[in-house]
Write a protein that binds this DNA or RNA. Structure first.
Length: 675
RNA sequence: GACCGUGUAGCUCAAUCGGUAGAGCAACUGACUUUUAAUCAGUAGGUCGUGGGUUCAAGUCCCACCGCGGUCACCA
């Protein structure tokens, strides 16, 4: 008998990884290759199950097959193995009647998870299990990592997402769901091409301007162009440029969008969107498209029209209901917003319902707020919600019968929006006005408002033919059709927080460095003091971070003021400040008010302030702190007190920082406003 | 971001009032040649997420931090 793994219980072979490495050597000693080049496979497990479905129990055949796959289970010392490949499983039967001593010895080096090749004949065991009666077996790829427990599988949700490959090996549900996703995307593509004549295109992911939807973007930087880009939040404006160019009558794109917002069971920062634009169609045709597409996918991928999800049964067949947003709101609340023409009146009506809107909310924003709060969740069966208010639809064409509304609809299922569509706005003057509205909103602090895209308006000036546009969240459709609980279940590699190593977690920044040593060149480059009127208010800012744990307001103010005074008085950032002189009607001058805003944030505790401080110093951002030592007696005692402390012993009360807004945001972004 | 929960062997999970960390599967040694989560006998395997604190004594109590999940908020 050729050598197999050492059988010495005193070695470290109880460590599964070491045991497997020993067996890997055993494979080599037997003349095998633990990482083989190939194997002449001629059948797949699932195909065999189908082909021999009618083979009676206890039947032996002479049909020779060569199969390959991963060992998922071993019984009776390897006499029975379950072999899994992408198509399914088949049992391998290793018996001395048909295998030589040398072949049987190879089993000693097999473990769960190994990829092996098997040649043999087809049989069905008396107990009814389709099997390959092996004549030879061969290691193809040794697996060094042990598989999760066979009965419960891998249930740790984090690990399932982080190590999707393990999840896929052991969890059939995960495999099925993610494969269905592929089929759904494929069916969408086929439908849009064959039924709507769509031409698939790709448009930029890196956008110089944010537009096409309302969402916070990711920002990135191109070195040689020395320019910021935004990962796209929507492809819309580029797709319509293609329509303007006459590239095709119908274009569509299936691709990722990126939105810098929360993560939830329904939201992943990068998600897949399909958008389509077709000339000489309008919002009504697009509603047909939603229905047709969902029904096509349901039939071709699932061959059914009822789907269980989230405790509901959703039936996608037939003609879907179409109701206006205002009508639905009225059904649920009794309020007829169409009869309300004044925004103030609308806000009052909204308030009465206990729904929150901004104090200056427009009429359309009020309607939308009530709709979202009171109606959305109830839209379980497929429905098209039509006639969206103009106030919330900056890219949709005004309704042909009512200027307060647009030709925009959204399709809902199981209480979720799954598609959004409209008759595209193609009047450049109107589009220009809508952009201006968005810019105003942006200036008022709405980070989700679109940016002014002059070139897009120019494109409209060349003429966008009458066009219908449509977009759908692919992940959400997948969730509904596969009955999944979480968007992460339908994404192969969902976005997760990166794992930090222990040493990275503890602050390793050099806090002994003084920012007064800031290079003069940098300071000079920013030296624009004086012409504050030309400076962007948002470009830089002061930030004060106070320790939330301090409950004495006097102390908080004292600490903040100390830190701020120090920052302004002593830092090399001096030339970056900009001071404004105000004058009142009496002629009295109010000088030296900072052009840049001062934001007051709160930190949970001293530790968090220490972290912010360390990060700021590491980034070269001026930062002055105030610790509790500085409240004891006179300066001399204070200096002595702090001199005895290090690390967490230092109790921070407040920090003052000054610098470029984006850099500060990166450091203080997770802190909330101090109120 | 807020609140609630959670983290113990490779995997799935226990551990009562604060008092010697256990089991099944996987692994290892052996028995067994028609099993189906195979079975039987034995062996080994632990920084109880990390760091502090309280205590004679901490997986358990306190504090901080890290990760994950759920709910809420924003959004598709």
């Amino acid at each position: 008998m050729t050598s197999s793994a050492p059988k010495d219980p005193t070695t470290a072979l109880t460590n599964p990884f070491e045991a497997r490495k020993a067996k890997l050597k055993g494979v080599i000693a037997q003349g095998g290759n633990p990482y083989a080049y190939t194997f002449p496979r001629d059948a797949r497990a699932g195909d065999l199950q189908a082909r021999y479905a009618d083979l009676a129990p206890g039947t032996e055949t002479q049909d020779k097959v060569a199969v390959a796959g991963r060992i998922m289970s071993m019984r009776n010392n390897g006499m029975f193995m379950d072999l899994m490949d992408a198509s399914g499983k088949v049992q391998i039967f290793c018996h001395k009647d048909t295998m030589s001593e040398a072949e049987l010895a190879k089993l000693d080096n097999f473990d769960l998870g190994d990829v092996i090749g098997v040649k043999g004949t087809i049989r069905r065991t008396p107990r009814g299990e389709l099997s390959v009666r092996a004549t030879s077996v061969e290691m193809l790829t040794k697996s060094l990592q042990p598989l999760p427990e066979k009965y419960h599988g891998l249930t740790d949700i984090e690990q399932r997402y982080r190590q999707r490959y393990v999840d896929l090996i052991v969890n059939e549900d995960s495999r099925n769901t993610l494969r269905k996703r592929s089929e759904i995307v494929s069916a969408i593509r086929t439908y849009l091409q064959s039924v709507w004549g769509g031409v698939e295109v790709e448009t930029p992911m890196l956008h110089p301007l944010v537009g096409g939807a309302a969402a916070k973007p990711f920002v990135t930087y191109h070195n040689t162009l020395d320019a910021n880009f935004y990962l796209r939040i929507a492809p819309e404006l580029y797709l319509k440029r293609l329509i303007v160019g006459g590239f095709a009558d119908c274009v569509f794109e299936i691709n990722r969008n990126f939105r810098n917002e929360g993560i939830s069971p329904r939201h992943n920062p990068e998600f897949t969107m399909v958008e389509l634009y077709k000339t000489y169609t309008d919002v009504n045709d697009m509603m047909d498209l939603t229905e047709g597409l969902v029904q096509y996918v349901a039939k071709n991928v699932f061959n059914k029209d009822e789907f269980e999800v989230g405790g509901h049964v959703v039936n996608v067949s037939g003609k879907w209901a179409r109701k206006s947003m205002c009508a639905l709101v009225q059904e649920k609340t009794g309020i007829d917003f169409m009869a309300i023409h004044d925004a103030g009146e609308a806000r009052a009506a909204v308030k009465k319902l206990g729904v929150h809107v901004e104090p200056n909310a427009k009429w359309g924003e009020c309607v939308a707020a009530v709709f979202e709060e009171k109606v959305e969740d109830t839209l379980i069966q497929p429905i098209h919600v039509t006639d969206f208010p103009l106030d919330i639809s900056p890219l949709a064409k005004p309704h042909r019968n009512n200027p307060r509304l647009t030709e925009r609809s959204e399709s809902f299922m199981r209480g979720w929006e799954v598609a959004n569509m409209f008759t595209e706005l193609n009047d450049p003057a109107d589009q220009r006005a809508r952009f201006e509205e968005q810019v105003k909103a942006r200036e008022a602090g709405n980070e989700e408002a679109a940016m002014y895209d002059e070139d897009y308006v120019t494109a409209l000036e060349y003429g966008l033919p009458p066009t219908g546009g449509w977009g759908m969240g692919v992940d959400r459709l997948c969730i509904i059709l596969t009955g999944s609980a979480n968007i992460r279940d339908v994404i192969n590699f969902p976005t997760l927080k990166p794992i930090k190593k222990a040493e990275e977690r503890t602050s390793s920044y050099d806090t002994s460095r003084s920012f007064a040593a800031k290079p003069a060149a940098v300071a000079a480059a920013h030296s624009q003091n004086g012409d504050w009127q030309t400076l962007d208010d948002d470009a830089r800012r002061f930030i004060i971070v106070v320790n939330e744990k301090i409950d004495n307001m006097g102390r908080v103010l004292n600490a903040a003021a100390h830190a701020m005074a120090g920052l302004v008085g002593q830092t090399a950032a001096g030339e970056d400040f900009a001071w404004v002189e105000y004058k009142d009607a009496d002629g009295s001058v109010h000088p030296s008010i900072s052009h840049y805003p001062t934001i007051i944030l709160k930190g949970k505790n001293s530790n968090q302030l220490a972290k912010v401080r360390a990060e700021a110093l590491a980034a070269g951002i001026p930062c002055v702190d105030f610790t509790d030592d500085m409240t004891l007696g006179k300066s001399k005692e204070q200096v002595a007190s702090l001199a005895t402390k290090k690390g967490e012993a230092v109790n921070y009360m407040a920090l003052a920082l000054f610098g470029d807004t984006p850099k500060l945001r990166a450091i203080t972004g997770k802190l909330s406003l101090y109120k």
